[in-house]
Design a protein around this nucleic acid. Structure first.
Lengths: 344, 344
DNA sequence: TCGTTTTTCTAGAACGATCTAGAAGATCGA
DNA sequence: TCGATCTTCTAGATCGTTCTAGAAAAACGA
């Protein structure tokens, strides 16, 4: 019962393997009666339908699209923003009954067989918050797999669904400038910071999105002094740790900007513990406008993340979609966590 | 440049295909110098490494585990509980640099080639909140794919990581009984309820988990009158809709139990809109203890969801793990949303 | 009735790798 | 120096399908 294949079934029924294959894939290529008989015999023999790998090999269609989902898969799930993207993407995938293959960016050997991106049987791939110069992306392009990224690439052939990061950050920067802030700290995510937090130079940031946002802030706050701090991978905890470091240091800024809402919420928590009120004692702002931002009163830049996922899915799966590069709108959402900078 | 295969590279270097294969998969089977030369030529020719499908077919290893993730993928991502499971699972998957294949349960034709579960190239599968009698599960077992479910199956051979649903629900039931509640409504998720809400009989519930929980409640509240209401697929909105239906009906219960926290939170929202205070005017309770439950003051049954995901991952991927059936602990967490039943 | 189209089915070659068994050459101990 | 062992590489079968072309039979039109 282990080795029941198309051939076995074909022999049992007394037809050719091609016909059995057609019974599954092209019902109109054979008489209904025969198809019925084949399916019945298959069931009897315990044949579970054409083998997935063999089919994928021969037909060239895997029936799945890959997702490169942030540095660390496990962390990605802790950010509702990332999950929102996946929700939108899965909506379209579901529509086309296509599976979603989440691939870990194993830092393991790139060339060896153990690499998940290498092993992945996929027809196309979505790249979420992974820089275009990441080795995993290289593998995908080398394999000739079509990709759609959430980062704008410079190359005109690249497909992406993104926001204007610089412009978005500038909106927030203008808001902060208007409130009189001239001394701010930007919370970024970074793999290295293990415990405690690290202060980074702009060149150490690494992630192009983050860089663009910082540039946008700088553009809109030319007179401000800006420090960059990281508490680790993007998460509530890293935001908390980064903010702790900042709040307990000698010179506190007047505003903390988390480059994601989860980090900003972590920063708010750090303030709460220290008896500080966001928007009065210190301004906090984030990016994304995740559901938890509203009840927390977090000022943030809203971006339509679920739609982003949907659009990426459409480009990847819907033949009717012809657009290759989509810019999504952003919006500054002002809530209670931002207020005027205290006079010195 | 389209058709560069192992063979092409082999010919270019002047070695056999087997050797090129070994260069990628078994580096110790050939001299370092030759391997270097092969890899270099491969790069030159634009060969991106062994084809995933072909490798999967021949070796019998797909390098991915499937995930059957709730009825509707897109809805699953809106429930932090489900996402928490995925986070735990992905943690282990990452460790073994194995991909996660999320398969939509297309209601489409089961036997045809368009079925995602049929097409899936996977070595094993996790089944999250999908009943054991679902056709998709049948396909997996027919294909001979090892599975681990989050539902306890009756059969002794089945693998699962679950909680004692009956006992868990009974804990909540006891709490409600002690508070004097004798008239409750249970909010369940159900595909059918499109708009508005539906009242169901026990037999119409369909999901074994839900059934077990209702039984647990009934066991601990023998004197209570219990109605079952659904507002659609599991979500905040369906909880909201279900609660609206209940609150606007003639005979309000004294307590509403959501079989998930998201539904319970939806119910709290419905109360808020109507100026009702949870725990005073009406008791609300949930299941899961998602992060949002605490700030909302929701009484609930906590279960270690991330750990559940990790355990499932271990059973699927870690050869060192021998356990097949794991029962996880649950805990009643009492918060402000539950209070004594008002005297009549 | 006879050629033409349509339906239904088949033979045999791919698809692109990995596996098994074994050959050729290098290394080694005595 | 010779058999034994190790290293390095290869030939050829095989994984389980689907594809391309085309044959045989049935249906059709005039």
């Amino acid at each position: 019962m282990g080795g029941v294949t198309l051939k076995t079934v074909a022999q049992a029924v007394g037809v050719s393997p091609s016909t059995v294959s057609n019974a599954y894939n092209k019902p109109d290529q054979l008489s209904a009666a025969l198809r019925e008989r084949i399916l019945a015999t298959a069931q009897e023999l315990g044949y579970a339908g054409p083998d997935a790998s063999a089919r994928a090999l021969r037909s060239g269609k895997a029936g799945a699209i890959g997702v490169l989902f942030t540095d660390k898969l496990a962390y990605a799930f802790s950010d509702p923003y990332a999950v929102g993207f996946l929700a939108g993407l899965s909506e379209v995938a579901e529509e086309f009954s296509t599976s979603l293959l989440l691939m870990p960016l194993s830092s393991g050997d790139i060339v060896g067989g153990s690499n998940a991106v290498q092993q992945a049987a996929i027809d196309a791939a979505a790249i979420f918050c992974v820089p275009g110069n990441h080795p995993a992306v290289d593998i995908l392009t080398a394999r000739g797999i079509p990709t759609v990224s959430t980062d704008r690439g410079d190359h005109p052939d690249l497909c992406w669904v993104a926001i204007d990061e610089v412009e978005a950050a500038a909106k927030l920067g203008q808001h902060l400038t208007r409130l009189g802030h001239r001394d701010i700290v930007v919370l970024v995510d970074k793999a290295e910071a293990k415990d405690g937090a690290v202060e980074l130079s702009f060149d150490e940031v690494g992630c192009s999105d983050c860089e663009a946002r910082i540039q946008g802030l700088e553009k809109a706050m030319p007179a401000a002094q800006m420090r960059i701090v990281s508490g680790g991978y993007n998460s509530f905890d890293s935001g908390l740790k980064g903010a702790e470091y900042v709040l307990d240091s000698q010179d506190r800024p007047t505003a903390i900007v988390g480059l994601s809402d989860v980090q900003a919420l972590g920063a708010m928590e750090a303030m709460k513990v220290r008896g500080l009120t966001p928007g009065r004692d210190l301004t906090v702002a984030g990016f994304d406008d995740i559901p938890a931002a509203e009840p927390a009163g977090l000022t943030t830049i809203r971006q339509p993340i679920k739609d982003k996922g949907r659009r990426v899915g459409r480009i990847l799966l819907d033949p009717a979609t012809t657009e290759r590069q989509v810019l999504m709108p952003t919006e500054l959402v002002v809530r209670s966590s931002s207020g005027p900078a205290p006079k010195r």
